[in-house]
Nucleic acid binder design. Structure first.
Lengths: 187, 187
DNA sequence: CACGTCTGGCTAACTACATTAGCTTTTGGC
DNA sequence: GCCAAAAGCTAATGTAGTTAGCCAGACGTG
C-alpha cells in the first residue's frame, strides 16, 4: 500500500476546503478521508478527532482572515482603510463559509492556543483601522467591538442568505461603511 | 402503557428549552425523548426528524423574539425605541442561546413557511424602530440591514463568549446604541 | 355496551458516523 | 541491511438518527 504522504496541515487544509465546498455540517471524517484518498481511521494519525479538526480549521480560518484584512489595509487610513478591511473580511467569509463557520463558538483552550493568537491578529488589524480615526482611549474598545459585531453580523447574515428582500446587498454594504465612517469621524 | 400526551408544540417547546440548557449541538433525539419520558422513535409521531425539529424550533424562536421586541418598543420612539429593541433582542438571545442558534442557516421552504412569517414580524418590529427617525425611503432598507447585522453580530459574539478582553460588555452595548442613534439622527 | 378505527406509544432492526485497538508496511537513520 | 517510528490498514465498538411494524388505549358510533 503506497503512502498518501499526509501531514497535519494537509489534513486541516483539506478539511477547511471541503467545509467550504459542502458546508461545515457535511464535513465528516469519512468524506474528508475519501477526499484525501485514505481510510477514515488514518486521519487520526494527524488530528485527534473531529473536535480537534474543527479547532484547527478555525485557527487556520482566523489566521487567513487576519492576513487578508492586514494586507488589504496596507497603505490606507481612515475611510479607505475601514472600507478595505470590511470588504476583505466580507469577501473572506463569503469565499470560505465553511471554515469561517468553524470559528463560531470555539473557545481557545490554552493561552498560547494558535487560535487565540490568530484571533488577536485579526483584532489587531481592526485596531489598526481605528487608529486612523481620532478616538479617545476609553472609546477604542467599544468601537472595536462595534465594528467587529457589524462585520461579523453582516457577513454571517449574507452568507446564510438571510437578506431576502429587494435592495442590492453591495449597496447596503457601502451604505453601512459610510454610516460607520461618519460616526467614527464625529465621535 | 400510559400515554405521555405529547403533541407537536409540546415536543418543539421541550426541544427549544433543552437546546437552551445544553446547547443546540447537544440536542439529540435521544436526550429530548428522555426529557419527555418517552422512547426515541415516539418523537417521530410529532416531528418528521431532526431537521424538521430544528426548523420548528427556529420558527418558535423567531416568533418569540419578534414578540419580545414588539412588546419592548411599545410606547417608545427614537432613541428609546432603539435602545429598548436592542436590549430586548440581546436579552432574548442570551436567555435562549440554543433556540436562537437554531435560526442560523435555516432557509424558509415555502413562502407561507411559519418561519418566514416570524422573520417578517421581527423585521417589522425593527422597521417600527426606524420609523422614529427621519430616514429617506431609499435608506430604510440599508438602515434595517445595518441594525439587524449589528444586533445579530453583537448578540451572537457575546453569546459565544467571543468578547474576551477588559472593557465591560454592557457599557459597550450602551455605547453602540448611542453611536447608532446619533448616526440615524444625522442622516 | 360492543365494535372498529385512529392515534401514540413501543420494540427491533438498519444505517451512518466517530472512535479505538491492534496489525502491517513503508520510510529513514544508523 | 537493520530497526524503530510513522503512517497506513482492517476489524470492532458505541452512539445517534431513522424506519418498519406491532399493540394498546381513546374515542366515536351502532
Amino acid at each position: 500500500m503506497p503512502r498518501a504522504g499526509l501531514d497535519q496541515s494537509t489534513v486541516v487544509a483539506a478539511g477547511a476546503a471541503l467545509a467550504d465546498e459542502v458546508g461545515l455540517a457535511q464535513l465528516t471524517m469519512g468524506s474528508l478521508a475519501e477526499r484525501l484518498g485514505v481510510r477514515t481511521p488514518s486521519l487520526y494519525k494527524h488530528v485527534a478527532g473531529q473536535e480537534d479538526l474543527n479547532h484547527r480549521i478555525a485557527s487556520l480560518a482566523l489566521s487567513q482572515a487576519a492576513d487578508a484584512v492586514g494586507v488589504a489595509i496596507q497603505g490606507y487610513a481612515g475611510r479607505d482603510a475601514l472600507s478595505a478591511a470590511a470588504r476583505a473580511y466580507r469577501t473572506f467569509v463569503l469565499d470560505h463559509p465553511g471554515r469561517y463557520a468553524a470559528t463560531i463558538g470555539v473557545q481557545p483552550t490554552t493561552p498560547d492556543d494558535p487560535m487565540a493568537t490568530a484571533g488577536h491578529c485579526l483584532l489587531a488589524a481592526f485596531m489598526a483601522v481605528l487608529r486612523g480615526y481620532d478616538i479617545k482611549p476609553p472609546d477604542v474598545d467599544h468601537a472595536l467591538r462595534m465594528i467587529r459585531s457589524l462585520f461579523h453580523g453582516f457577513a454571517t447574515l449574507q452568507s446564510a442568505n438571510a437578506f431576502q428582500w429587494s435592495a442590492d446587498i453591495d449597496e447596503s454594504f457601502d451604505w453601512l461603511i459610510t454610516f460607520t465612517d461618519r460616526g467614527l469621524r464625529t465621535l
